[in-house]
Simulated scan of single mutants.
Amino acid sequence: MTFTLVMLPPQQAALAGWPARLEAAVPGVRVLVPETATAAAAALSDADAAHGALPPELLVHARRLRWLQAPQAAPPPGFYTPELIAHPVIVTNMRDTYTDQVAHHTLAMVLALARGLPRYGRDQTAARWDPRMEPGAVLALPGATALVVGVGAIGAEVGRLLTAFGTRVIGVDGRRTEAPPGFAELHPADALDTLLPAADIVVVTVPHTPVTEGMFDAPRLALLRPSAFFVNIGRGPTVVLDAVVAALAAGRLAGVALDVYETEPLPPEHPLWARPDALLTPHVASAGTPADERRFAVLLENVRRFAAGDPLLNVVDKASWH
C-alpha cells in the first residue's frame, strides 16, 4: 500500500536519517518532514499517518489521518486532547523501549534506601563518621515485601529483579490479570488500599492518566507503615509531593526515592532537596538506553504493519491515555 507519513515539528532534530531509512525499508511509504506548523497543516491534509504531537489546531487539518505514532512511551500532559480522543485516528506509543534501564535505576534506588545510602551520602559531604548498626537501620531484602503498583513491562521487570534478592513481590494492575515471573501475587487496582499496609517497599510505575493523577495523596500515603520506603519512577503527577513531605516530616515514612515530580525541574527551594531521607534523581531513569534506535525500531515495525494492513504495535486507549 502506498501512503504518506508526516513527521510533525518539532521532532526533526531527533529524527536525523529516519525519513530516508523508512522510505528505503518500506516500499510505498512517502515521508514528509515539514519544518513549520503551517507546512505541517498543509502536509496533514492528505496524510494517512503521522509521527509526533497533534494539537487541535493541526488535527483539524488531518481529514484522512488513520494512524498517529506518539513519540514517547508516555507523552507529556496535554497530548491526549478531547479533540484527539474524539477523532477516529488510531494512536500508538513507544512503550517498552527502555524497560531494562528504568528497572535497573529502580533497583539502584531500592538498594540505596534499604542500606541507608542517602543519609551516608550526606554524612560524607559533612565528613561525619556516624555508623548505624542498630536493628532497623537496614531493610533486609530477603523476606521483605515489595508492592509494585503498575505491572506493565517496567513493573514486571522490577519485580523479577527484586525477587532475585529474596524479596516477596506482589503487584497491583488495572489491566493485567496473570502474575508475571517472580510475582507471588497479582491483584486488581481496587485492591491497592488493602495491600499498602503490608508493604515494606512500594514501587510506583503507573503512567499519568485521568485515573492515576494524584493517586498517592495524604490519605493513601497514610496507609503505609512508618518503616516503609516509597519509590516513584512512573510519572510525577501520580504522587502529591506535599503529602510526601508531610509524611516524611511526621515520621510516617522511612524514606523516599523519586525520579519524577509534579513540577519538573523540581524547584530549588523545595523541601525535599534538604531531607536526609529522600533520594532524588532528575528524571534520568532511562539514561543509558539507545532510545532513538529503539524508538525507530517501533516506528519502522508499525510503518510495515500499516502498509500491510496488519494490527499495529502498542495501540493506546486514548480515553485513558495509555
Rank of each mutant, 00 (worst) to 15 (best):
V91Q: 01
P268T: 13
A164F: 03
D217A: 15
P181D: 10
H283W: 01
F3W: 08
L248Q: 12
A13G: 13
A126Q: 14
V316R: 12
V33F: 04
A179K: 06
D310I: 02
R95M: 06
R252F: 03
V158M: 08
A114G: 10
P210C: 09
S320A: 13
L141Y: 09
T4Y: 02
L186T: 08
A25S: 14
P219E: 06
T209Y: 08
A16Y: 08
P311Q: 00
V31N: 03
A24Q: 14
L59I: 05
L107P: 04
T281Y: 06
L258K: 11
A153W: 04
F306L: 04
T209F: 03
A20V: 13
D123A: 12
P210K: 08
A184N: 04
A14V: 13
E83F: 01
G251I: 07
H105K: 05
T289R: 01
T238I: 03
G251S: 09
Y261I: 11
G166D: 07
V240K: 12
D48S: 14
V6H: 00
G136L: 01
L58N: 04
P75V: 03
R128C: 14
A285I: 02
N302K: 03
P219W: 06
V284S: 13
P197G: 08
R175F: 15
F296E: 08
V89N: 05
T167P: 05
A74E: 06
V316A: 11
V89H: 03
A13D: 13
I90Y: 05
T92H: 08
A250G: 08
G166Y: 02
G78T: 02
L195E: 00
G136D: 05
S320V: 15
A49C: 10
P27M: 10
V231G: 09
A108P: 01
Q101A: 13
R64L: 00
H283V: 07
A184D: 15
A42D: 13
P210L: 05
G182H: 11
A199Y: 10
E185D: 13
V231D: 11
L299Y: 01
L107M: 13
L147M: 04
E301G: 11
R30T: 15
A50Q: 01
P71Y: 11
R294D: 00
T38W: 06
D96K: 15
P10I: 03
A179R: 07
A222S: 15
I154Q: 03
L68R: 02
P27F: 00
W67I: 06
T194C: 06
A291W: 14
V89Y: 07
A278Y: 00
L44C: 01
L113I: 03
V148E: 00
L58W: 07
P75S: 09
F165H: 04
L84F: 08
M109K: 10
N302F: 08
T4N: 05
P180T: 00
L221V: 09
H270I: 12
R176N: 05
P265H: 02
A127R: 14
P88A: 01
A243T: 06
D46N: 13
G166C: 11
H61K: 13
G171L: 07
V26N: 00
G152S: 00
A70M: 01
E269D: 15
T281Q: 12
T145D: 10
